[in-house]
Computed example of a mutant assay.
Amino acid sequence: MLRRAVLVLALLLAPTLAHAEDQSAADRAGEAAIRARLAAWTEAFNRGDAAATCDLFADDLKSAVQGAPAGDKAAVCARIAKALAKSAGKLAYLCQIHEILVSGDLAMVRLTWVLTERPDGKALSRDEGMDIFRRDADGIWRIARFMAFPVDQNEHAAPGK
């Protein structure tokens, strides 16, 4: 009797467990795709390619960056293009990903961006941020929302961080 109950329970749970394994694989694939998108954005920025940097952002992008007006895709892309044009190839970003949580077609990324000046790599700014990615209809992950705020380069991490 116990054996039969275990067998019935296993048969009832099998589709749920299989779905959980599939979802986990999809989430891992999403995380890998997002890491690749952020790496491609960093490379595009560092080579001065403003058009390629804009491809990371969804058409309905909303952003909040401390010290800058709230932005949509056009405003964010314009700020990036202006910075790249002004810098004459002297600016470079480093991206430090702290966490990626994926659930279906949405993901949250917690990260730090360090803006440096070439050729010496002197850090100009350090921004902590949170990006909300969405897998668009074309299957490509894009940032739909993001928030960023500058942190002091010399600031020591607070306890527990």
Score class of each variant (00 low, 15 high):
R110S: 12
L56Q: 01
I100W: 02
S125L: 14
T116G: 03
P119N: 08
G104M: 15
V76I: 14
L61K: 00
A78S: 13
A123N: 12
A44I: 07
C77L: 10
S63L: 05
A10I: 09
T16N: 05
M130P: 02
I97C: 13
L106A: 12
G160H: 10
P159G: 14
A14T: 12
K90V: 03
G104K: 15
A107F: 02
R142Q: 14
T116S: 06
A88V: 02
A74Y: 06
N46V: 09
S103W: 10
R79M: 09
A52L: 05
D22H: 14
P159F: 10
M130E: 05
R37V: 09
A52T: 05
K86R: 10
A36M: 08
M1R: 15
R134S: 13
D55A: 15
A70H: 10
L2V: 12
M1W: 13
V151F: 04
L101C: 03
P150R: 04
R79Y: 02
C77F: 05
D120H: 15
L11S: 03
I97W: 05
V114D: 02
A51G: 09
D138M: 15
E99V: 09
T16C: 12
E155W: 14
R126G: 00
D55I: 07
A36T: 07
V114E: 04
D55W: 04
M147R: 14
A158V: 08
P119H: 10
V109I: 06
